[in-house]
């Protein structure tokens, strides 16, 4: 039998929460659905968008149960509603650090200090920057990292998209609904995107031109308006100016683990969090799920699955505490 609970609580509702999740993306929202159904008091901290990267993805075709696909925003909202239905509390704020206090963990947050018996780190990752001249200067004025947010400003305009992986191809295709033409600049000599996406990209040949072996060196503007990108063909060494009204950058992701720098929680060489077969980190009672976990497959379905697994492991951990 399911039970509906009114969710009129906030971060101060419990002196010690059974579980605090850091992040409210697909992994944490799924974990919260499982824990709250078992009366494990659960608080989720979200510094950005509820639903994480899934919420800013236009369309998702590979999440099971949606034969026609589903909008990222809709899936995220459904995950949120389902977790809140059983009593999950979402606090809009950031967790800055975790300290192990033995009987509990102390989290320093933008909403003050919060105590938790168990913690789930599900912080995912953020877009990487190119680090080239013009990138920071023209951020949000011609340089962007979120197509679903800012694409609409490029109706009838020309765009450059940088990157050769799934995100770059997916977002370039999305941007064709606004832009008249897109130059896709790929550093390597082939695409890293999945076969399915590469196949789809073929259908946009008239709108998207792919440039392989092309580095993006500088974003240039005149009177504060982006005019072109300076690129180099790494095979010939030849420089070329690519005329554009804006640049969208999708060159990969950086794990959101900076807030762990003062802890002993073990990370792998790229900064993802290591865990054992129970998804527990080397700090007892601190679990990890989703994109930020070393070994994760970086998909929404796997993030929600890991969230559920972590929830069941957390239940065991809390049970053993009693």
């Amino acid at each position: 039998m399911v039970k509906d609970k009114p969710a009129v609580m906030d971060a101060t509702s419990h002196k010690i929460w059974d579980l605090v999740t850091i992040g409210a993306g697909p992994a944490a929202l799924s974990a919260a659905l499982y824990t709250t159904r078992e009366d494990i008091t659960t608080l989720l901290f979200e510094k950005g968008v509820i639903g994480g990267l899934a919420a800013i993805t236009d369309w998702i075709d590979n999440y099971p149960g949606f034969p026609k696909g589903v909008a990222g925003l809709e899936l995220s909202d459904n995950l949120r509603l389902q977790a809140e239905r059983f009593g999950a509390v979402i606090e809009l704020g950031e967790v800055m650090s975790i300290t192990d206090k033995g009987t509990h963990k102390l989290l320093a947050t933008t909403s003050g200090d919060i105590k938790a018996r168990a913690v789930l780190i599900a912080t995912g990752s953020d877009y990487k920057k190119l680090g080239i001249p013009g990138e920071a200067e023209y951020f949000a004025r011609g340089v962007h990292y979120c197509a679903t947010c800012d694409g609409a400003f490029y109706r009838g305009k020309k765009l450059v998209v940088v990157g050769g992986g799934n995100s770059a191809v997916q977002e370039a295709i999305f941007l064709t609904r606004y832009a008249t033409h897109i130059d896709l600049l790929v550093r390597g000599d082939s695409m890293r995107a999945s076969e399915v996406l590469q196949h789809e990209l073929n259908d946009y040949k008239d709108k998207i031109s792919v440039h392989f072996n092309t580095t993006t060196d500088e974003i240039v503007a005149k009177d504060n308006v982006v005019t072109h990108v300076v690129s180099t063909n790494s095979k010939t060494g030849k420089q070329k100016n690519i005329i554009t009204d804006g640049v969208f950058i999708f060159i990969g992701l950086r794990p959101n683990t900076g807030f762990l720098k003062d802890t002993k929680i073990a990370l792998d060489e790229i900064g993802l969090i290591k865990s054992d077969s129970k998804l527990e980190t080397n700090m007892p009672g601190v679990f990890v799920a989703g994109d930020v976990r070393s070994g994760a497959t970086m998909q929404i379905a796997s993030a929600t699955g890991e969230g559920d697994t972590a929830a069941l492991m957390i239940r065991e951990f809390l049970h053993d505490l009693k």
Binding site: D58, S76, T148
Partner: peptide, 17 residues
């Protein structure tokens, strides 16, 4: 706002709250 902007949803949610 725009239809696909998740951050717009968050601003509205926060102001509402």
């Amino acid at each position: 706002t725009t239809n696909t902007c998740a951050y717009c949803v968050m601003v509205k949610k926060w102001l509402g709250a």
